[in-house]
């Protein structure tokens, strides 16, 4: 029985970790190209989650169109954020710290937009969105939303891997991550690549927003979950998407375990201590890619 409880927690942790991984990779993509912490990613995620919520709740759309709406909204909002908050500073060749400041301001602004439209209360996706609630596998009970998160994350990462490895635009994004100036010297239109990066990051952000909204609940503060992406990308070793994804899943599993064993109040304390120990023991992160340039 004890083993089953453990296994149950592992499944819960993995699905939470999967959503964290989506957030973290979307966040890390922009970091890799522009080298700043894009907290506005949280705002993108929040707006997409609420866009999904509107079509599910008011138009009664079924699950898959709801998720698609969330994903597309993510891409659109991410491009808008780039235009409003980052484009002008980049053209003026502003320092990296200014990007950070505008990105957190953007996060706060988008949060306020949600509060103005929906109020500060908690919402949840309609109960009818999913026909089946749980699956029983022997003694295990797996919530269908958790399974959905896991499966969709795997699909999303496969597509992302294909785009980054095989398509022209993906190779250009990887080149830009390596060296933006050299990429532009090779005759690649860097502005387009940056917009493409924001689109890909926004697609992932939209998906993670809707998934988090479905499996947990919605509140305008949902965007602050971007901090999990930040944690995972620092722990994972900035610069490596694989390391970031692994760190995010580990973070999710740890969180679920700790909340189940010592309660939610002490969890942040233990996470903090583990984080400091990890950073001291392995400063290069999970993936071992060392990165020194950072604002």
């Amino acid at each position: 029985m004890q083993v089953m409880v453990l296994l149950q927690q592992v499944i819960n942790g993995l699905s939470l970790g999967a959503v964290y991984a989506l957030i973290a990779v979307g966040y890390a993509l922009v970091f890799n190209v522009l080298k700043f912490s894009n907290f506005a990613h949280g705002g993108v995620l929040g707006i997409s989650a609420y866009a999904g919520y509107i079509v599910a709740n008011q138009l009664h759309w079924p699950l898959i169109p709801v998720i698609l709406v969330g994903i597309l909204t993510g891409a659109v909002v991410a491009v808008l954020v780039e235009l409003i908050a980052f484009r002008w500073i980049r053209l003026q060749k502003g320092q990296l710290v200014y990007f950070f400041v505008t990105s957190v301001t953007m996060l706060m602004a988008l949060e306020q937009v949600l509060i103005i439209r929906f109020g500060a209360s908690f919402e949840s996706f309609p109960y009818t969105l999913l026909k089946v609630k749980v699956i029983h596998l022997g003694e295990l009970t797996v919530s269908i939303t958790y399974l959905l998160s896991l499966v969709l994350t795997i699909i999303a990462f496969s597509v992302l891997l294909y785009i980054l490895k095989k398509t022209k635009i993906g190779i250009a994004i990887r080149a830009a991550s390596n060296d933006l100036v050299a990429t532009s010297l090779m005759g690649i239109n860097v502005d387009q690549i940056i917009v493409a990066t924001f689109i890909v990051s926004g697609l992932l952000g939209g998906l993670s927003g809707v998934l988090y909204g479905i499996s947990a609940s919605l509140s305008p503060q949902i965007g602050q979950i971007v901090i999990k992406g930040f944690i995972a990308s620092v722990l994972g070793g900035l610069g490596s998407l694989k390391g970031v994804a692994i760190a995010a899943v580990a973070l999710g599993v740890f969180e679920v375990f700790l909340v189940a064993t010592i309660g939610s109040g002490l969890t942040p304390v233990v996470i903090f201590l583990l984080m400091v120990i990890f950073l001291l023991v392995r400063p290069q992160g999970f993936a071992g890619v060392s990165f020194t340039d950072k604002a």
């Binding site: 912490s37 942040p268 984080m275 400063p283 020194t292 950072k294």
Partner: peptide
């Protein structure tokens, strides 16, 4: 690194 400091202070 500096971003570790940001992360640690957050934690």
């Amino acid at each position: 690194r500096q971003d570790f400091f940001a992360l640690a202070t957050f934690g």
